[in-house]
Structure formats: C-alpha cells, structure tokens
Design a binder for these strands. Structure first.
Length: 271
DNA sequence: AATCGCGCCTGACGGC
DNA sequence: TGCCGTCAGGCGCGAT
C-alpha cells in the first residue's frame, strides 16, 4: 500500500535511471488499469527523452518534451528498473524501455493504479488541478489547516486524508500522526483546537519525513530491488496494532471504522 | 459546499 | 489439502 513516502522513495530510486535517457519503446501487456492505458502510449513516448521525474501527491510524473506520463501505484503497484530482457512475471503490466537496455516496469496485482499521458501542463490535469498542498512543503501550515477545518463536521482523520485538503496522507500515516498529536481520529475536524493543529501539522511532517528517510536508507540500488522500500520497518505506534499494548502507556489499542477504513488509536493517549 | 458510500481488483487469511 | 467467504484499501465518482 504505497503511501507518499513509498512513492517519493520510488521517485528517488527510479529517477537516476530515467533522466537524460530516451524511450526506446513501451510494452503494454495489460492496459486494464484503473483507467485504460492509452493505446498509443508507445508512439507518444518513443524516442522522447525523459527530462525529469517528479511527484505530485502520490502521482509520479515522467516529463518529456511533448508531454507527461502520469503514474499512480494505487494499492498494490510498484515500479522497478530492470534489464529490458528480464522475463515478465504475472501482473507486470507495463514496461517503459529505455535506450540504455533498462526498462521501468510497472507491477500491480490489483490494478488500482494508472498510467496516463497528457500533452498539457501536468499540474492542470484534471486529476491534479484540485489537489491540496504537499504536506512537506512550506505552504502546508497550521494556519492553513486550522482555517480549512472550521465548521467541518467530518472526522479529523478523514479531513487530513482528503486530498483536497492535503495530499499524500494515507490511512497508515493519518493514524500514526493523530497518535503522535494525541488526537482521537473520530473528533470532528471543526472541534479540534488550534493548539492541537499545531501538534498535528508537526506530527504529519515528522512521520512522513521519517518514513521517507527509512525508505532512503533501505534503498541502495533500485535496480532489481524487490520494489518495496523498507519504510515498513519504521515502528508503527497504532496502525495494525489492535488489542496490542500502547507503546507509551500500555493500554490496549482500539480499533474502529471511519469512512470504511480501519482506524487505530490509543484511548488513553488520544483525546 | 461538504459529506457519504460505492466499487474497482486480487491475494492473504481463516474456517471448515 | 482444498475450497470458499471475507477483508483490505486509494481514490474518483455519483448521490444526498
């Protein structure tokens, strides 16, 4: 389940293998992703030089002179850089082969991800143009989050997972950040105080930064890695720890459902 | 405008 | 061992 840290780790891992190189060909073995992979992706990319690999939220952007390839990993997607002649295995849906003999290979069992192409300014694309700020950028501030939360009745966990508010805060790190900030996930966002949002913004930035760092330390060479950066090695305080003792106070971690998603919290540490 | 629930899809897992 | 039901989960979308 790639969250922002895994996507960013992926971006950093693949970028050196792509930037400055030209696409030799694109192989689409199964284009039935969340949206169909463009049938003409090969002709769009063939011969084009990848000039940059960037990210907006959990979307990866491969920039070429005539357009941008937009990739999302969904729930189960991963990208690896392999020798082009490496045999494809089940769920290896798309290869972007380079003139270096390497290829960028998308593996996505559940096919919730996507590979799209736009000729226009990518940030104006309909999937990207209404996204909130990046959580690790300077414009994601306490003032911003606090102002947007007023009169909001939705649970604060769903509020910070809303990509219109802030991008890249998925189920795992929303739970972890709320734990660090001492806030119950079910609290209406509009009832969370400014003092608590100070803690929450700090916690979101801290937990994501730590996870990226963990991914970066595990990732030595993205080539032939297993495609799963090691941020899972980061110690989780609440997520997936239902009925286990809180690492801080020892009380039993509770579990509930918010917006059809598993939500974990410590009833003693979070109010 | 905000909020809520749905469904896409497959692998893992638990029960029998 | 094998079969089957259930669950997980990002996120766009339609309904309210």
């Amino acid at each position: 389940m790639p969250e922002l840290p895994e996507v960013e780790t992926t971006r950093r891992g693949i970028a050196p293998h792509l930037i400055g190189h030209c696409v030799d060909k694109v192989i689409v073995r199964d284009g039935r992703l969340r949206w169909p992979v463009p049938r003409n992706l090969n002709s769009l990319l063939k011969g084009q030089e990848i000039t940059a690999v960037s990210r907006r939220g959990k979307y990866l952007l491969l920039i070429t002179l005539h357009g941008t390839t937009i990739i999302h990993l969904g729930m189960s997607g991963s990208l690896r850089v392999l020798d082009t002649d490496t045999p494809a295995v089940k769920h290896d849906h798309v290869d972007i082969c380079l003139d270096t003999g390497k290829c960028l290979r998308l593996h996505d069992p559940r096919r919730f991800g996507c590979v799209l192409f736009t000729r226009d300014e990518p940030l104006q694309h309909e999937l990207l143009n209404e996204l909130g700020p990046e959580p690790l950028e300077a414009d994601f501030t306490v003032d911003y989050l606090f102002e947007h939360s007023r009169r909001r009745k939705a649970a604060v966990k769903l509020f910070i997972m809303d990509s219109h508010i802030v991008v890249g805060v998925g189920n795992i790190y929303a739970s972890e950040a709320l734990f660090l900030a001492g806030i119950r996930p079910s609290r209406p966002a509009g009832r969370v105080t400014r003092a608590e949002y100070i803690k929450l913004v700090e916690a979101i930035k801290r937990v994501l930064t730590a996870a990226i760092k963990a991914g970066g330390t595990t990732l030595r060479d993205f080539t032939a890695s297993d495609g799963r950066p090691g941020y899972f090695s980061q110690q989780l305080n609440v997520y997936g720890r239902k009925d286990e003792p809180c690492r801080v106070c020892g009380q039993t971690i509770k579990h509930s459902i918010l917006g059809q998603r598993a939500t974990h919290f410590c009833p003693h540490c979070q109010h």
